[in-house]
Amino acid sequence: MHNFITYYLGAGFWGSLVSSIIPLVFILPFALVAIWLELKISAHMQDRVGPMRTGRWHGWAQPLADVTKLIQKEDIIPAAADKALYILAPALVFVGAYAAYAAIPFSPAYIGSDINLGIFYIVAVSALVVIGILMAGWSSNNKWSLLGAMRTAAQLVSYEIPSSLAILAVVMVAGSLNLNDICAAQSGWFWNWFVFGKFPFLFITFIIYFIASLAETNRSPFDIPEAESELVAGYHTEYSGMRFAFFYLAEYANMFVVAAVAAVLFFGGWNSPFGTFLSGPVWGVFWLISKGMVLVFIQIWLRWTLPRFRVDQLMYLSWKILTPFALVNIFAVGLWVVLRG
């Protein structure tokens, strides 16, 4: 029973529809919560208090108000823009983030699509984002956008290498590409999690994956595609209103995708840290989301601490540090698996 919805509704049209809509039901509130968290955490890190008025209690309704504002905004398409691509780009970016949710096992009883190539699928659909961003940058017909898009293409393509290599190391240990199986392989107490397994190799793998995932989601210190102080706003300079909101939404959706994947690969996914205590399908959702949120917090924390890399330094980090380390790691983990199982 990997998907309780298809279990009850069948694998037909209705079952598929409902199970494909559930991630959306999750993404929208999550994005709002994450935006609010980002506002508040950044504010408190900077000795401020952040939004305090909207919704009375600590400005909880601020993201809602922002979204409402963005929806109401006039939809401007630059005269010189390539209209079709310009309209399509935000949707494509969002699709890339959204489609990845299909393979994330939220609980033992719920995964959008329990495919055997789960993690491979996530890596593949995440790459859609590159096309969307390139389209956005090109179609805006703005030099800054184009520069931002070119940077993104270079960045995302290079960081897929270390992140895939890091994933590969876990896959070797788990012996499966299916995310549910990977979760199941880490059941029991928290010291069974892969982040502590084959110490320290999988821990280093986690660090590599985490850094690469920051780059893949264009989060600081790898936010050079947007780089508001350099490229004005990068590929979404010309976007406003709802289309801009889509980019925004996609960014936060992506943040959770990479955090959830990291939680599944390294932190036991839906497993309870305490053996069978508080485990089960419902608690599984809780554990996965809270593990994901902790990682999202670290992403936010880093963003408000670090300056931004330069393009060439980014490439240096990817090709000359992360990739060699990931390769050595794979070799070591592989050796370990072969020799000691």
């Binding site: 955490i41 504010a43 208090v49 924390w301």
Partner: peptide, 21 residues
């Protein structure tokens, strides 16, 4: 140095704000 910076921001996360409403 990244960890040092993270330490600073974490410390400020728990210091009271200097701004007023």
């Amino acid at each position: 140095t990244v960890l040092l910076g993270m330490k600073v921001t974490m410390r400020h996360l728990f210091t009271p704000a200097v701004t007023i409403q």
